[in-house]
């Protein structure tokens, strides 16, 4: 974190990212897209649901579809433990909940520290969901491209 704070002072183009984990991988998502983080709660089922869709929830009067990121990103499904939670993100005018294993941190990443994913990472299925990569404290954070994950046009 200290390093991150230093970076704020150093550069103008710094974005905040919410870092969360799915399986063994740490992902980042632009914090501007995050509406709130809520705990796992009972879902209402969706007819003919696809595997990754756990159902819909009622978030203070708004209907929010919830997607399990493990399944969506091709990891093995597990039981939700007490660290699992739902990150509610804004996609255009709508909200979508994503279930992740754990929320880790909020970090600042300078634009110049973001690397094009294609040059570094060539691991099949998940590649298309990752737009950028940052190496923070020797660990790789993959910045999620929410538009390609959720198959909608920007």
């Amino acid at each position: 974190m200290d390093e991150a704070i230093e970076m704020i002072q150093g550069s103008e183009e710094i974005q905040e990212y919410l870092i969360f984990s799915v399986d063994s991988i740490e992902f980042g998502i632009d914090i501007g897209r995050v509406k709130e983080i809520i705990k796992i709660q009972p879902f209402s089922a969706v007819p003919n649901a696809l595997g990754y869709c756990k159902g819909i929830i009622n978030l203070r009067g708004t209907i929010v579809p919830v997607v399990d990121m493990r399944i969506k990103l091709g990891f093995p499904e597990t039981e939700y433990n007490e660290r699992a939670c739902i990150i509610v993100i804004m996609l255009g005018a709508e909200l979508i909940g994503i279930i992740v294993d754990a929320v880790r941190d909020v970090i600042h990443i300078s634009e110049k520290d973001l690397l094009d994913a294609a040059s570094l990472y060539d691991g099949g299925e998940r590649k298309k969901y990752t737009s950028k990569i940052a190496v923070i404290d020797g660990k790789i954070k993959q910045i999620l491209d929410v538009f390609s994950v959720f198959e909608i046009e920007e």
């Binding site: 969706v46 007819p47 003919n48 649901a49 696809l50 990754y52 869709c53 819909i56 009622n58 009067g61 209907i63 929010v64 579809p65 997607v67 996609l91 709508e94 909200l95 979508i96 959720f150 198959e151 909608i152």
Partner: peptide, 19 residues
């Protein structure tokens, strides 16, 4: 929610929802 159509193989028969 319009994203729901990505969550289901068919939403035929469903016109909306109510809380």
């Amino acid at each position: 929610p319009s994203y729901l159509k990505h969550c289901s193989s068919s939403l035929d028969g469903i016109g909306g929802c109510a809380i």
